[in-house]
Design a protein around this nucleic acid. Structure first.
Length: 943
RNA sequence: GCGGGGGUCGCCCAGCCUGGUCAACGGCGCGAGGCUUAGGACCUCGUCCCUUAGGGGUUCGUGGGUUCGAAUCCCACCCCCCGCACCA
């Protein structure tokens, strides 16, 4: 950190510049960012989101609002615990992540086996880097989501939600890790991302008094079944399942038990015992032989499948392997297999009668262990499902589309009583801990019933009444509200708050973070030890947050004073509602919408959030940032490379709206050098300036600054941070640069005024440099506490603006002329059009604007001989508005403007310049050009 | 598949709602010049093609349409990004 940065941080801190308390009667703004999850250090993405709010907070503060920008840390959930455990087990990839991506010293990593230590470490480094960046946060209100007081708060929230009927109990299937004893979401998986439970049909084939139970996703193929497959090496069991006698793989028994089937094992044996026996298929009544299939996974389904060689590449290939002796098999098995023929039951355009055979030759499968069988299977299945039609060989299914036949087959099988269903993962799923997962039906889970139409209606109202920046995000909110289903809000492992009425369950991370912004109004008192965590009882919080109950008796029960209790209530009502909550767009479908739902449920309308800010995600050098890709950029490392202002400005200038922000080192370096150039630029400009009366150019600069202030203000109000920063920093710079170049004698007072405004406009983005600049300009007090520049100090001056438009236009035209002309170029004569031509223009332009015919006007001014198409072309070139202003503004004197600028134009072009007025007596016009002069388009003669 | 957002002159990006001021803002890169002992920084000009009087031509994912006029409005298509849930 540079000494200057350190100095200003010290000053802000000393003056408590960002520690707001309620000031009755003073308008307030309460802004928040979702707290970051502390399984790693904050990174440039966190910074991008946080800084948008930081800029906004500083902007509003300068506008005279009492602004609260608090911060906290998210520790809830099982990710932190999971990482700790993996480290403990010696997982090298976690360790590398800590050391290489996060930059944690080896000596610290050792201690990360304690999850709380891990989270505390990251909290510490993250807090420090945020402070070093100069974020205007009120750190007095900081907390972690496992703090005792926070837990009391969440307990209150869930008790109230339950009373209101928004928390309900239900049963739901999940992907389950038997080792962790917890659901395994996508993020927790080593293998099988995106895989979710599917319903398999279990079809019972009679084998004496037993039922050999085969699992399938394609019950409609039962009419094409030729045999059954079991894995000869696999372990199978006879068991009593739901009162029936079943034969399935042993592993299936435990999975069936997880799905609420009643299972009593009888005996177990090897799959080979079943070979060459016959089982009877339902519906067809066919007796099918049991054959060895090593591709059958005993850990999936029931470990038994039936074979449909005409339509399943695996089945056909395995059958051929046995028939052709590629697989060792007993004589009896070979004999049986030798007699089997595929039974086609589906026709698909583009395939022969046996689609599986086509797929095998297309993919060049050699044997039943060939990897290409996966692809062949997927292809045949998809084509048959979408385009296939059942043939007459499939009995009652004949003529149906495959998609319809599936349902019909299930219905027919169900009637025979020989169908059950089971949820199964269609692909292997492995938990991060290395354990293979299966489906478990969880009972008595707690849900937030977001599917409740009345609740949805209320949530919709929250969004409808709030400002959404950018407006495009609103549609996404609305479709999320429609789509959202019941959400399991508690789980059994990880850090967090227990459900007060059911201590086995811990409120899950997304569900304990929905109304916590309210807690910032309390946490100040807890941190100052003015309120003890134990005293935050439900009725106590009812009073503070909802105004319910009698403060006198509540205070007594909480061992505090009534005054203190009323103070807490006042703090809450002062700051609430949240004025702006800003986050990256990925949180719209969950967190931000939950935030709307919970406020709708718990608080009266006046406490509902007033604004949402949405930004894109962060990319690094055009690519998605991730630890595994090795392009992870921590906030700390970027800050150290580019300095606080450079870092802030680089992120401010990267993207607006929901566009993804691209972090580029080059851009950040550039931002830094630009920031550092401001103060020297300003002092140099001031040194070259002097005392004099303001002229048209000064009026132009004031006028232009007026427009810049308006633009920055408007952009900030709409959270268009990039636009605001670009105008405040880059456009302003260009304006001053133009002034400095254009003016022969820069006026000191003008520059002081403009630089004063400039410092203020840049203050939210580059506050350190801003304070330096303010000091340089002799400003009193702190810039961060100064007033936002006032439009009144920078009056609009239309004539001055028109003069510069005309000067710029003449320069542009003259340059393009000089580029082309190869003749003499000693002197440029400029002929400004006559008053008559101006009037002609004015009448034409206004006639055109009113949509009237222009014939009359043209006729009346026939003497001017300017063809109307040339006139209209010029109007289009300048635009209706500018043109009208130009020709209708009686104050504006084009001749005066241009002759005043003739020395500037001359030095820019490197050619002598003389300005004439067309129609003047004794006009010097050897080239006879003056007649061609039009408004803002004077005629030229080069000699 | 469903939902959301996008495709602009080497790169990033503004403009699109409210059609003409659009060959199209700004930044980066690149070229030339200035400043400097030199480099960096800074400043100026240039950077789609053609052009000996300020002009012309072809551009805003693709193809149509509306209009005197379309980057902007309408329709169809192609492509890219994000989200899709027991998880931060």
């Amino acid at each position: 950190m540079s000494p200057r940065e350190k100095y200003w941080l010290g000053v802000w801190n000393e003056k408590h510049a960002f520690e707001p308390d309620p000031i009755p009667g003073k308008k307030k703004v309460f802004v928040t960012v979702p707290y970051p999850y502390m399984n790693g250090p904050v990174h440039v993405g966190t910074a991008f989101t946080a800084l948008r709010v930081e800029f906004y907070a500083r902007f509003r503060r300068m506008q005279g609002y009492n602004v609260l920008f608090p911060w906290a840390w998210h520790w809830t959930g099982k990710t932190i615990v999971g990482m700790s455990q993996r480290l403990k087990k010696g997982d090298q990839s976690v360790r590398r992540g800590f050391v290489e991506a996060d930059g944690v010293p080896e000596s610290e990593v050792e201690k990360f086996v304690d999850p709380e230590y891990l989270a505390a470490y990251y909290t510490k480094v993250s807090r420090q880097v945020m402070k070093d960046t100069g974020l205007s946060i009120d750190w007095r209100r900081e907390f972690r989501t496992i703090d005792p007081a926070y837990r009391r708060f969440v307990e209150w929230q869930y008790l109230r939600l339950r009373e209101l009927g928004y928390v309900v109990q239900g049963t739901h299937p999940v992907v389950w890790c038997p080792a962790d004893k917890s659901p395994t979401g996508d993020a927790d998986r080593m293998e099988g991302e995106g895989v979710s439970p599917q319903e398999f049909s279990l079809i019972k084939f009679h084998l004496g008094e037993w039922a050999l139970v085969a699992a399938t996703l394609r019950p409609e193929t039962i009419y094409g079944a030729t045999n059954l497959w079991v894995n000869p090496e696999g372990e199978y069991s006879e068991a009593r399942v739901d009162g029936e006698l079943w034969i399935v793989s042993s592993s299936a028994l435990s999975r069936l038990a997880e799905q609420k089937h009643e299972v009593t094992p009888v005996r177990s044996f090897r799959g080979s015992e079943l070979l060459a026996r016959y089982a009877m298929a339902p519906l067809t009544g066919r007796s099918l032989p049991i054959l060895p299939g090593r591709f059958v996974d005993a850990a999936v389904g029931t470990g038994v499948v039936y074979s449909v060689p005409a339509h399943a590449p695996y089945d056909l290939m395995t059958l051929r392997d046995i028939q052709e002796g590629r697989i060792e098999a007993g004589r009896q098995v070979r004999e049986i297999a030798g007699k089997l023929e595929p039974v086609p039951i589906i026709t698909v355009a583009g395939y022969s009668k046996i689609p599986a055979a086509d797929a095998l030759s297309k993919h060049g499968a050699k044997d039943s262990l060939d990897d290409s069988l996966e692809a062949a299977t997927a292809e045949v299945y998809a084509d048959e499902f979408h385009r296939g039609v059942m043939t007459a060989a499939s009995g009652p299914l004949g003529g149906l589309a495959v998609a319809d036949a599936k349902a019909k087959a299930a219905e027919l099988l169900a009637k025979t009583g020989r169908l059950t269903t089971m949820l199964e993962l269609p692909e292997r799923v492995v938990c991060r801990c290395g354990t293979r997962c299966h489906v478990k039906v969880l009972e008595n889970q707690w849900f937030l019933n977001y599917s409740d139409p009345k609740w949805k209606e209320k949530a919709r109202k929250v969004v409808e009444r709030a400002a959404v920046h950018p407006e495009e995000a609103r549609a996404w909110f609305n479709s999320t509200i429609d789509w959202l289903n019941d959400w399991p809000c508690a789980r059994k492992s990880g850090m967090g708050t227990k459900l007060p009425w059911d201590q086995e369950w811990i409120v899950e991370t997304l569900s304990d973070s929905t109304i916590y912004m309210a807690f910032y109004t309390l946490s100040k008192f807890v941190n100052q030890e003015k309120v003890a965590p134990e005293s935050l009882s439900p009725s106590f919080l009812d009073y503070v947050l909802l105004g319910k109950g009698n403060p006198a008796s509540l205070a007594k029960a909480a061992k505090t004073t009534e005054k203190r209790l009323r103070e807490l209530r006042m703090e809450f009502t002062y700051w609430y509602p949240v004025d702006l909550r800003n986050s990256a767009k990925e949180l719209i479908p969950n967190h931000l919408t939950f935030f709307a739902f919970h406020h709708a449920a718990l608080f009266p309308e006046k406490e509902w959030p007033k604004g949402f800010g949405i930004n894109g995600m962060i990319q690094v050098e055009g690519k998605k940032m991730s630890k595994s890709k090795g392009n992870f950029v921590t906030w700390r490392s970027a800050l150290e490379r580019h300095g606080a202002d450079g870092f802030r400005l680089a992120l401010a200038l990267t993207a607006d709206g929901m566009d993804d922000a691209d972090w580029r080192e080059r851009a950040a370096e550039d931002a830094r050098s630009k920031v550092e150039a401001v103060v020297p630029f300003v002092s140099k400009a001031l040194r070259s300036a002097g005392k004099r009366e303001p002229d048209s150019l000064d009026a132009w600069l004031y006028s232009t600054v007026h427009r810049r202030i308006a633009a920055v203000t408007e952009a900030m109000e709409q959270m268009k941070v990039r636009r605001a920063a670009a105008a405040a920093f880059l456009d302003m710079w260009n304006d001053v640069r133009y002034y400095a170049r254009r003016s022969e004698h820069p006026r000191l007072q003008t520059l002081q005024d403009v630089f004063g405004a400039w410092a203020r406009l840049m203050a939210p983005f580059a506050p350190f440099m801003g304070e330096d600049l303010n000091k340089e300009l002799g400003g009193k007090g702190l810039l961060c506490q100064a007033d936002w520049p006032s439009l009144k100090d920078f009056p609009i001056d239309e004539e001055a603006e028109l003069a510069e438009v005309v000067v710029a236009k003449v320069l542009e035209d003259a340059r393009s002329l000089l580029r082309v002309v190869k003749g003499p170029r000693a002197k440029l004569n400029v002929y400004v059009c006559s008053e008559a031509v101006r009037t002609y223009f004015f009448e034409l332009a206004s006639a055109k604007q009113k949509g009237e015919g222009v014939g009359q006007v043209v006729k009346r001014f026939a003497g001017i001989k300017a063809p109307p198409d040339r006139v209209f072309k010029l109007i289009f070139e300048l635009g209706d508005e500018t043109m009208l202003k130009l020709v209708s503004n009686k104050q504006f004197d084009e001749y005066a403007a241009l002759s005043g600028a003739s020395r500037y134009i001359s030095s820019e072009l490197g050619v002598k310049v003389e300005v004439h007025r067309a129609g003047a007596s004794g006009l010097y016009d050897p080239g006879n050009r003056a007649k061609d002069a039009l408004p803002a388009k004077p005629a030229f003669f080069l000699e």
